[in-house]
């Protein structure tokens, strides 16, 4: 499923002074492009939103009161948040290691950071089941410890950590590359300890990039379906996430409920977009 979601770089936004005066072909192309986007993207999503909002806001609330819908949304939100934050820490560390250290295997490591974006997430889920499934030694051992991974919440977390992995790394890396190590040296010479240097000199310029990457990872995790559907076991009320819930409702022919829950996810996703754009711009503007 949404394998490469979000590998796309942020839109260049307003930063493009080179503008052309279009000819007739340009204007025709503009019209075609606008119609294509409207038919392919705007229309289906508008229909989805329309369908979901048919019953008004109370309809959406009613859908959330369906059995397990609310639990699914809660589960989706908290697992996405936790994994996004974990990867904010590990992603920053990974970017640091990749940019600042020179070691054997560095370029391989750097390449593999993108693996979660290139591999079908269904396959990623399958890998986790293969490793931690109840019939495997590792899975049985975890289960024996009272900490089952596959078909349980830890499996969801593991899958989302996998999906999330590249976002913070890739947003922090370019900013870090632009950061002059002399700034850290300046702080040290002025008497700052390692921790102070980290907190006062390094983190502030990186903060927008870290936050932007984290939000992107969070949004990406909210939408995740392929890996979750095989890893989680989809036990309603316990390991059923919202995208899987929507899938179940569609399969059962209850498109109204599916659309209503979709509206909630869609609202969150679209609501996050401006924040991501703003943070990306901030991160970009900081490395002049």
């Amino acid at each position: 499923m949404a394998a490469l979601m979000g590998t796309v770089r942020p839109s260049p936004g307003g930063a493009s002074p080179a503008v052309l005066k279009p000819g007739a072909a340009g204007i025709a192309g503009r019209g075609l492009f606008a119609s294509w986007l409207s038919l392919l993207v705007a229309l289906p999503l508008a229909v989805l939103a329309w369908h979901g909002l048919e019953g008004g806001p109370s309809g959406v609330l009613a859908a959330l009161e369906l059995p397990y819908a609310w639990e699914a949304l809660q589960l989706t939100l908290w697992t996405s948040a936790v994994t996004a934050i974990l990867n904010a820490v590990m992603g920053t560390a990974t970017a640091w290691v990749l940019v600042r250290y020179r070691f054997w295997g560095r370029s391989l490591l750097s390449m593999l950071v993108d693996l979660p974006l290139a591999i079908p997430t269904l396959v990623a889920g399958l890998m986790i089941v293969n490793l931690f499934g109840p019939q495997t030694p590792l899975g049985a051992w975890c289960k024996g410890l009272g900490f089952p991974v596959a078909f349980a919440v830890p499996g969801i977390v593991l899958a989302l950590l996998f999906i999330n992995l590249p976002f913070v790394v890739r947003s922090v890396e370019p900013v870090l590359m632009d950061l002059d190590p002399a700034e850290e040296e300046a702080a040290v010479i002025l008497g700052a300890r390692t921790w102070t240097t980290l907190r006062r000199v390094l983190l502030p310029p990186l903060a927008p990039a870290i936050a932007g990457g984290t939000l992107q990872g969070f949004a990406r995790a909210l939408a995740e379906f392929g890996s979750i559907v095989v890893v989680s076991g989809n036990i309603p009320g316990r390991t059923l996430t919202s995208p899987v819930f929507i899938f179940g409702e569609v399969e059962a022919g209850r498109t109204e409920a599916a659309a209503a829950v979709s509206v909630v996810l869609l609202a969150i996703a679209i609501g996050l977009q401006p924040a991501v754009r703003w943070l990306n711009r901030l991160a970009g503007a900081r490395h002049v």
């Binding site: 002059d180 002399a182 700034e183 040296e185 300046a186 010479i189 006062r200 000199v201 310029p205 900081r286």
Partner: peptide, 14 residues
Amino acid sequence: NIGFVFQHYALFRH
């Protein structure tokens, strides 16, 4: 306790 001025200044940008 040494003062150091870097080639590209290395001012703290934020």
